[in-house]
């Protein structure tokens, strides 16, 4: 048991150095793939939330990143942003695309979440996301029945918290977009 302290330090240092070197190679090898997946996911999300655009541009306004979609004529057809907020288990991150001319939401796309599989995780399903297609701007009411007014969002059965969280994140995102871009186009 009387190993010299210098030997203990040496052992841990050697292991630490070897593992750091090995991991830096792994990092270099995997990073391009990981970044590519993230970019693809973002592009796919943009195509979903600003459907009519041909080209997308990333712009920074007031410290926040927005994505603007332009059609073939060079006109801006929509604005999108990545927004996040607390869900049931952890942060939900999603993308919201809006049409500033008609003051309506194009659609939403969930990017990351850790909601309960089979329950809250259904926020990624089409049934729930359809709630937001062509939704007018405003304060949303999450209801547990068929929506009767335009500002009502139908909750997922058994996952009211997740449903409300998403509605809240979308509301806040729209407000932020309106603040920066003003009411009009």
């Amino acid at each position: 048991m009387d190993t010299k302290i210098s030997k203990l330090i040496l052992t841990l240092t050697v292991i630490g150095i070897i593992s750091a070197i090995a991991l830096s190679f792994v990092y270099q090898w995997t990073t391009p793939y990981i970044e590519q997946h993230q970019m693809e996911a973002r592009e796919e999300a943009l195509r979903d939330v600003i459907p009519k655009a041909q080209e997308y541009e990333e712009v920074e306004k007031e410290g926040q990143i927005f994505f603007e979609g332009y059609n073939s004529g060079g006109n801006r057809t929509g604005v999108a942003m990545i927004a996040s907020g607390p869900g049931y288990q952890n942060i939900i991150e999603l993308m919201v695309g809006v049409n500033l001319n008609s003051q309506k939401v194009y659609g939403i796309k969930i990017l990351t979440h850790e909601e309960t599989p089979g329950l809250g995780a259904r926020i990624t399903g089409d049934d729930y996301k359809e709630n937001y297609i062509d939704k007018p701007f405003g304060d949303y009411n999450v209801v547990k029945r068929e929506p009767q007014s335009e500002l009502e969002v139908e909750a997922i059965a058994g996952a009211t918290i997740s449903s409300k969280s998403v509605a809240k994140i979308v509301e806040n995102a729209i407000e932020q977009i309106q603040d920066v871009y003003g009411g009009g186009a």
């Binding site: 048991m1 203990l8 052992t11 841990l12 792994v26």
Partner: peptide
């Protein structure tokens, strides 16, 4: 080559290295 006194931290370091590798690999 691993002295008994630092056996646990050494094991954890080695395990953590492989776990980090797995994490990157799956993400990529």
């Amino acid at each position: 080559y691993i002295p008994n006194n630092v056996r646990i931290p050494s094991f954890i370091l080695i395990i953590a290295t492989f776990v980090t590798f797995t994490d990157y690999f799956l993400k990529a």
